[in-house]
Design a protein around this nucleic acid. Structure first.
Lengths: 158, 158
DNA sequence: ATTATTTAGTTCGAAATCGTACTAAATGGA
DNA sequence: TCCATTTAGTACGATTTCGAACTAAATAAT
């Protein structure tokens, strides 16, 4: 019993340390990739803004701000701010939501689509350089684990 | 030739999309884990501040701010700010660097050590809850891949 | 129908991040 | 030795993030 208890404890601390390490790496990668990414985006468009553009392209535009906020797991006030930036640059357009007077819908403008395509093209150049160094298959392998962790964390919040 | 070219292109785009997905998951996990973590830290101590405390405990205190900045891959101005917060709370102490008059060294105070231990204890409670849901072995498995990616990104910056 | 509650979005303010420009000390070269 | 360059850290300002409080519309309850 004593052995087990001590064992449990040790394992617990070790696991905590390992999980820490995991989240620590995640944090640094996020830092670096965001910075790297940001540098390639013209004009001071942020990564957050680009991500929304990209999402609207992939998933379909006409979504509500709240839907977008929950897709990216950010507070709705942050999404308001991001969308305001996109709108000011003319990359998205807000229209009223006909089904709900409180709400709005977000639509890509032609400029928004073009911007997204050009950004992707510019990123492809970087990718070409990074691909030789990055172990892409290993990264792809890790994605299911990451998604899993993401879902657990998501469900866990109060 | 045409086939190859087209193939190359398709693979490139697919890879870009996959790598995107990877970084996207990373971003969301970072968001959620930081938020979750932040909530457990008393007083408005930030995750960045706690991370520095933890680092000083594990790696040994007496390091310079610049060394810490490069360990966390953040600009030195950000580290100045983080350290200022820790110092104001009495969790670390800055002493002159005897080997270099421009520089300083960062030391944990007893309060800093205590704070770190209590935070860890508080996190253990959360971990107990999350451990049942998280696939910890899979996460541990992913760490080498993450480290690898981190190193590549790190070397890649201009 | 009328009132209470919930929900979508914004405004406002506080804090974190980080680039630019600076000061002061160390190093290197003539 | 003296000046130029590099390096450690900070001050300042712009931007992002996000919680709290708010407005307006929709839904629920009586």
């Amino acid at each position: 019993m004593d052995d087990d208890a001590q064992n449990e404890d040790t394992t617990g601390e070790q696991q905590l340390a390992r999980v820490f390490e995991f989240f620590n790496e995640i944090g640094i990668i996020n830092q670096l990739s965001t910075a790297l990414f940001q540098k390639r985006l013209p004009d001071g468009v942020t990564v957050a803004q680009f991500s929304v553009l990209n999402h609207l392209t992939r998933v379909m535009d006409g979504q509500t701000p709240l839907k977008l906020a929950s897709a990216f797991q950010v507070p709705k006030t942050s999404m308001t701010h991001t969308l305001a930036g996109l709108e000011k640059r003319g990359l998205v357009e807000m229209r009223p939501n006909e089904r709900d007077g409180r709400s709005k819908t977000v639509w890509l403008t032609p400029a928004g689509r073009t911007f997204r395509e050009m950004s992707i093209a510019s990123l492809m150049a970087d990718m070409a350089r990074l691909q030789s160094q990055l172990d892409v298959p290993a990264m792809v392998n890790a994605v299911p684990t990451l998604s899993e962790v993401r879902k657990v964390l998501d469900q866990d919040r109060d």
